[in-house]
């Protein structure tokens, strides 16, 4: 616990203006969780949670699991969201959103 004194002298300059405060906030280790900003958290095409890789990617990623997951989410103009992999297969068959039957056009992609 002897290192505290040293610690103080190091930061002394930053404290001058706050000396009258009761507390000084030294450090904050925050934890946050990210998730896709979606309305429905399962992909309607493969029925897997959008946070997980789609079925195909899960089967393939056995080879290179150290890679960052790159099975991202895509939003259509209709605001429905799917795995990008699932949707790109889907539009080859039918260029409509599987949920609302609107013409499919990409609004944005997850990154």
């Amino acid at each position: 616990m002897g290192d505290i004194e040293q610690d103080n002298s190091e930061r002394a300059d930053g404290e001058n203006n706050k000396a009258d405060k009761l507390f000084t906030l030294k450090k904050w280790n925050a934890v946050a969780m990210w998730s896709w900003d979606v309305e429905c958290d399962t992909c309607a095409i493969c029925r897997v949670q959008v946070m997980d890789a789609c079925l195909r990617c899960q089967a393939e990623s056995k080879k290179d699991f150290y890679e960052k997951q790159d099975c991202v989410v895509v939003w259509g103009e209709c605001n429905h969201s799917f795995h990008y992999c699932c949707m790109s297969l889907w539009v080859k068959q039918n260029n409509r959103c599987p949920l609302c039957q609107q013409e499919w056009s990409i609004q944005r992609m997850g990154k």
């Binding site: 925050a30 946050a32 990210w34 998730s35 896709w36 900003d37 991202v72 989410v73 944005r108």
Partner: peptide, 8 residues
Amino acid sequence: FSGRKLTW
């Protein structure tokens, strides 16, 4: 990143 939301 885009399309992500953070929960603290």
